[in-house]
Design a protein around this nucleic acid. Structure first.
Lengths: 228, 228
DNA sequence: TCAAAAGTGTTCTTCGTACACCCATGA
DNA sequence: TCATGGGTGTACGAAGAACACTTTTGA
């Protein structure tokens, strides 16, 4: 059993982005080699002998998509036989969060195309990537409810309503504005700036807020736990 | 990057057991080959070309320890270079739960010895297994608070106090008996039998309870969520 | 009759939730 | 002046936390 093992190790990444225009989106590449040539798939590829798993993810993302990832966390490892028709490949998957200003894409040699897809309008995906994406979505939903990772999807300064809409988009349910504000404010890691939102249409401009990560870590040290 | 990848794939398992006598325990093997010959380590080994990751874990456990695993869940994948001094090995780790009556051990060819160690009296471990164990412990603590996995560590029928002591051992804090009973009973997946505990000493014998898994799944379907 | 462990209810506080009107701005 | 979206407080009910005495058994 310990001799002649012939299994390849890959990484794949589910990268989430959010804008209030587009909602919650996922970054996909169009494959330009077989198998699944022409299909949309998660960015990813084989791990180099000398690089860590995280480095491999970062490298693949920059090779294939050009995005700047802001938060990266290991998701799950998939190892079923037949998930890649060529060889036995186990894939260690990650999910990542990108701020809206890191949204510019450039498809590269390895990919025929790169695009953001709204989470509700996904194409058919190659391999078992549909299942991976589902796991990632569920994980993000859970994670956002007990750690303030949502801020990794917003600009540095944002109106409160952005945060609220983000939570509604990810959790896919309505949230009461007043209760949500009360709950988030209570923790004390959100700073009000004295700037106001720049408007794109009518309506009263909201105050801009900033997430104080330093403060959050202090509170976490003290055992205060975030929950939405 | 895609040519001549030379990385081995292994699985390792953190197996937890519980008895009120011994408290929360972890199953370790004594290595009989180098590196770390003579050190205690988590059971595990390389994955065969034709087996799933879960199968590999089950096989290693039965080869090395002879325990019957009751619940198995993937934990995390560790891939740092240097974690195995021989080759680049990435390890996909699992944690498992064993009922007290599956406690009999038999060390086998692959291991010089197998033993249960109380979680508070662990020896130095080989490789990065100390870190893996820490991740597993934290995961178990979290998991037990939102899914009733604790029952996988108890006999089929158990006095209520067993459940309570188990939670105290895993969470490492005091739990109020009355509040705990109220909370657990409320869910309705715990059945009271009309048998009573067999005593080992003085004290009033407790009623025996049984976990109704069927009922739990029904409740879960209805969106009722377990939380301690 | 004593020691050991199990069984059981009430009160108080905290948190979650439901809910509607006024304000600032651009068109 | 109208339409759009932001800002704000209160009241009710549910759940969590603190807390002590009685019962059953073996020695």
């Amino acid at each position: 059993m310990s001799t002649n093992q012939n299994i390849k190790v890959a990484v794949d990444a589910v990268v989430f982005g959010y804008t209030s225009r587009e909602g919650l989106s996922v970054l996909l590449i169009k494959r330009n080699i077989d198998p699944f040539k022409g299909s949309w798939a998660l960015p990813g590829g084989l791990v180099g002998n000398q690089e860590t798993l995280e480095d491999a993810v970062q490298r693949e993302l920059s090779e294939e998509t050009g995005v700047n990832i802001n938060y990266l966390e290991q998701l799950y490892s998939f190892g079923q036989q037949g998930r890649d028709p060529r060889n036995r490949v186990i894939s260690i998957t990650y999910y990542g969060l990108v701020k809206p200003d890191g949204f510019e894409l450039k498809a590269n040699t390895d990919a025929a195309d790169v695009k953001w897809f709204n989470i509700k309008k996904l194409p058919k995906l190659a391999f078992d990537h549909q299942a991976i994406l589902q796991v990632a979505r569920t994980r993000l939903q859970n994670k956002m409810q007990y750690e303030p990772v949502g801020f990794e999807l917003l600009e540095e300064k944002f109106p409160f309503s952005e945060l609220e809409k983000l939570y509604m988009a990810v959790l896919d349910r309505h949230i009461d504005r007043r209760n949500f504000k009360k709950k988030v404010s209570k923790f004390g890691f959100l700073e009000e700036t004295n700037e106001k939102q720049l408007l794109d249409g009518a309506g009263r401009p909201g105050n801009l807020y900033r997430f104080n990560e330093q403060k959050y870590f202090e509170l976490k040290e003290q055992g205060i736990s975030f929950e939405i």
